[in-house]
């Protein structure tokens, strides 16, 4: 499903070059639930952004569902992101001005579905996350856990094959976190591949496989993060 080989990502300012990922190689199989852990600044989010086609790697090869995405242009990457990838964020990232229905509608609009198809999908996913009765509510009228369920519904509406979750329970209390985790596990059981970045070792253990990222590289060992910034000036 996802295959990264020697991915490198560096950010450059006038005086500093920061290596966020260095020879990062990872393979995630279809249907897997993989958790990614590591200290702050280790490159977890950069990995997630590259995996989600939000950023392009500086070097290396990335195959998504067998397709080399390294050379795709923005339109192609956006289409692929829309069709194959679902995002769940720590901060939910719902659009505050839009009600739940319209929030879930956003990716479906870019997919080009007609109104009938969009409505059918939105109602289906709202039912799946148990928020059908709140379709016309604004995000601010919901609890954190409910908002994250809406975000999950939005990610699922396009029926993606690949779900990327960036600390999806980071802003939730333990009860809500458990509910969200159960929902993700349920989604995974239905065949969706999930890669979840988390700081929580308990949640990480519930995944099929746990990958530790340290200093921008995949590592089995936890160690103190070394500086990743190299002065070049």
């Amino acid at each position: 499903m996802l295959k990264m080989h020697n991915i490198r990502k560096s950010y450059r300012t006038d005086t500093i070059e920061t290596h966020a990922l260095r020879d990062f190689s990872l393979e995630v199989n279809e249907g897997e639930f993989v958790s990614v852990t590591g200290p702050s600044g280790s490159g977890k989010t950069t990995f997630l952004n590259i995996a989600g086609l939000l950023e392009t790697p500086t070097g290396g090869q990335y195959l998504l569902d067998g397709e080399d995405v390294s050379s795709l242009n923005d339109n192609q990457r956006s289409r692929l992101r829309n069709e194959k990838i679902g995002f769940i964020f720590q901060g939910f990232n719902l659009i505050p001005d839009l009600n739940l229905f319209d929030n879930i509608d956003v990716p479906l609009r870019y997919r080009g579905f007609n109104a009938k198809e969009r409505k059918k999908r939105i109602e289906k996913v709202l039912e799946q996350v148990g928020l059908s009765a709140r379709a016309r509510h604004l995000p601010a009228q919901l609890s954190g856990g409910q908002q994250q369920r809406v975000a999950i519904a939005r990610a699922l509406a396009g029926e993606p094959r690949f779900l990327l979750a960036d600390e999806p329970t980071g802003n939730l209390d333990s009860l809500m976190a458990r509910q969200v985790m159960e929902l993700l596990e349920f989604i995974n059981e239905w065949g969706t591949t999930i890669v979840m970045v988390t700081h929580d070792p308990d949640l990480a253990r519930r995944a099929h496989r746990n990958i530790q990222v340290v200093d921008g590289q995949v590592s089995d060992l936890q160690r103190t993060a070394a500086p990743t910034a190299v002065e070049i000036a």
Partner: peptide, 16 residues
Amino acid sequence: APEAGVRRALGASRNA
């Protein structure tokens, strides 16, 4: 800009 970021993540191209 944050909303535009969300839209980009959800499949909006730069052109969109």
